[in-house]
């Protein structure tokens, strides 16, 4: 749906040039909810603004829905923008217009017939749960409601893609949740591909199926959300993952363990739906091991579960080795931990 090939963007301001993006390669498939995460200044906004050509790349190639953006004339470029909806952190609604008029705006620009506008806007306001606010003005709405209007407006021209630049960053956690649920509904009911920018890993965790991590204009890691959350490689990614996946040994437990350090500590990591109970059953019965769980955590990601177990084990060394092989065969990562 969206492809970026070797895309770079350099800004020139007052003789200072900033390399906002450095040879980015990215592929977003139809139906994806693709999350891009990174710290401030990483180049995330620049990246989305390239997809609807609000900004032109310095070099590289961008294709949207099979069309090379660089080859389109201004008219065709405006046409393709109608297939790409966008929502913003600050909502960017017209304060001087009613909610109805705001949502109708893309249709008015396309010179749609009044009757059709009436029907479409009514339908969209119902979809985002604001049917009763048609005649209100943006200043009379809460942040969450304003973002719903933004979403309805972005959907008015029946886009194939929705771009969200920090769409929930100005909202409280509960409102964020409801907006994310709405975005998921947009993805599922209309089949719209979503490219979402955020600096909160929790947002990625809740709705994305794929993620790219950005740092200083580079994509340092990308993949399915389950795999990136399960096995983050880059330190920055690890930092982001740890904000939602609490899989490190808590400090209080560490200090307790340090006091009596006779026993070895193992960390078991697993992704997926096979239950831990059966694994403990095998450790106990087949391998005759005595297991003490020191700490555990499970985090739900997509339809999967990330689980981590810190255990101490008593038993024969030979059995232990066999048990570890068995675990690895069952996609459980085993690691000896030194505190």
């Amino acid at each position: 749906m969206i492809t970026l090939r070797d895309v770079s963007k350099t800004y020139h301001r007052k003789k200072i040039s900033t390399e906002a993006l450095k040879k980015i390669n990215l592929q977003i498939e139809k139906g994806d909810i693709f999350g891009v995460i990174g710290y401030s200044g990483a180049g995330k906004s620049t990246l989305v603004r390239l997809v609807n050509y609000l900004e032109r790349p310095t070099s590289g190639e961008i294709t949207v829905d099979g069309k090379h953006l660089a080859e389109l004339n201004p008219h065709n470029l405006r046409e393709i923008k109608k297939e790409i909806g966008m929502i913003f952190q600050q909502f960017n609604l017209l304060e001087s217009k009613t909610i109805f008029q705001n949502v109708a705006m893309p249709l008015i620009l396309a010179k749609t017939n009044k009757q059709v506008i009436q029907e479409r806007v009514t339908e969209l306001l119902a979809f985002v749960g604001l049917a009763d606010k048609a005649a209100s003005y943006p200043s009379e709405l809460s942040g969450g409601q304003k973002q719903r209007v933004g979403i309805a407006r972005a959907l008015a021209s029946k886009p194939k893609i929705l771009l969200c630049d920090e769409a929930t960053s100005a909202l409280d956690p509960q409102t964020t949740q409801s907006i994310l649920d709405l975005l998921k509904k947009v993805n599922e009911e209309y089949g719209i591909t979503i490219l979402l920018i955020t600096h909160e890993m929790a947002v990625i965790q809740q709705i994305c199926n794929k993620v790219a991590v950005m740092e200083e204009g580079n994509i340092i890691e990308k993949g399915s959300v389950v795999s990136v959350f399960g096995k983050p490689k880059h330190p920055t990614t690890k930092g982001f993952v740890q904000t939602v996946v609490k899989n490190e040994l808590p400090f209080s437990i560490k200090t307790k363990l340090k006091k009596n350090q006779q026993q070895k500590l193992y960390r078991l990591d697993m992704i997926g739906d096979h239950t831990m109970e059966s694994i403990f059953y095998y450790l106990f019965h087949t391998f005759q091991l005595q297991v003490t769980v020191v700490f555990t955590n499970m985090t739900e990601i997509q339809d999967s579960v990330l689980a981590v177990w810190y255990i101490q084990v008593e038993g024969e060394e030979r059995n232990k080795q066999q048990a570890w092989s068995f675990l690895v065969e069952n996609q459980v990562n085993v690691e000896e931990i030194t505190i």
């Binding site: 609807n52 609000l54 470029l77 405006r78 046409e79 393709i80 923008k81 109608k82 790409i84 966008m86 913003f88 600050q90 960017n92 609604l93 017209l94 304060e95 001087s96 217009k97 705006m105 893309p106 008015i108 620009l109 021209s157 771009l163």
Partner: peptide, 30 residues
Amino acid sequence: VNPGIIEAAEAMGATPFQVIWYFVLPEAFG
């Protein structure tokens, strides 16, 4: 006028005339 509004207009594929007529002038009217 909030530059974000102009950005939203351009993202919708508004022509320069439409940006002025439908977005900037109404917002600046008061």
